[in-house]
Design a binder for these strands. Structure first.
Lengths: 139, 139
DNA sequence: ATTGAAACGGCCCCACC
DNA sequence: GGTGGGGCCGTTTCAAT
């Protein structure tokens, strides 16, 4: 269903998702039309879910990035999920195994913002916060 | 340095980083040239760090996604960082606060693969593994 | 910093293999 | 599933403002 050429195309898009089909075609030895067709199929079958931009949040005025391990109060999962849109600070949320059954990545302006955010979270469970010090993949 | 028009452009790229400058121009009320110039500047100043593709790892044969909270042995940070390329399974790594001072997201084929991966990690520290059950942002 | 115009290159559809 | 071509659309550069 997904062959090695598809994987090469995906590798190329991983490096830069704005790469043109012509350029990808050169890399994988295929015509632009074929690349387009394959990418289309990968999108249709939801192997490719979307294309994102990677931002420097600090330079956008968000000086704090934190991970929160969250222990939801029992029976609160549904209401928490429904309220997720009320927390624009949460950029990723996952249900995970462990006593802290929710994991989230949160982007915040500063410590005050973090405090206010945690206060709002306390309605739904018990948070444990870990500040992100540095991204080891990008220096 | 980054004004509201830049923020609108960034919002558009967040939704889909392959959106054309013409389309973004329509959304923000600017000519394609101007959009391009602004995006160029955002890239040059590293506000925009890159463009990524969002994949369905399960459909690519990676059935397990886990978070690992990692307690590095003292003095092992440097060697661990140098060995990172030897762990293609690690797709994100951060230094964080807390007794588990490293956080990583890892993509794996199956439980056997996880076991082998953890065995290799044990040279550098003590891992605590959390399976990802579901992404609450996307269903 | 923004623009329009022009040249260029990429995208897309379709007919064909 | 892959290709090639023609028309269209997007991108890039640049001179002018």
């Amino acid at each position: 269903m997904v062959d090695t050429v598809d994987l090469k195309i995906i590798e190329s898009l991983k490096v830069n998702s704005r790469t043109s089909f012509v350029e990808i075609g050169k890399q994988v030895g295929l015509s632009p039309s074929s690349v387009r067709e394959r990418v289309q199929k990968l999108e249709d079958t939801e192997v490719i879910k979307g294309y994102n931009v990677q931002l420097n949040n600090r330079k956008l005025g968000f000086g704090l990035e934190v991970f929160i391990m969250f222990k939801l109060f029992s029976g609160k999962l549904k209401t928490f999920c429904e309220q997720l849109e009320q927390f624009p600070e949460i950029c990723e949320v996952f249900r995970i195994t462990g006593t802290h059954n929710i994991f989230m990545k949160v982007i915040l302006v500063d410590q005050l913002h973090l405090q206010q955010f945690i206060d709002r979270l306390l309605l739904y469970g018990e948070p444990t916060t870990h500040l992100i010090l540095s991204d080891l993949k990008n220096l």
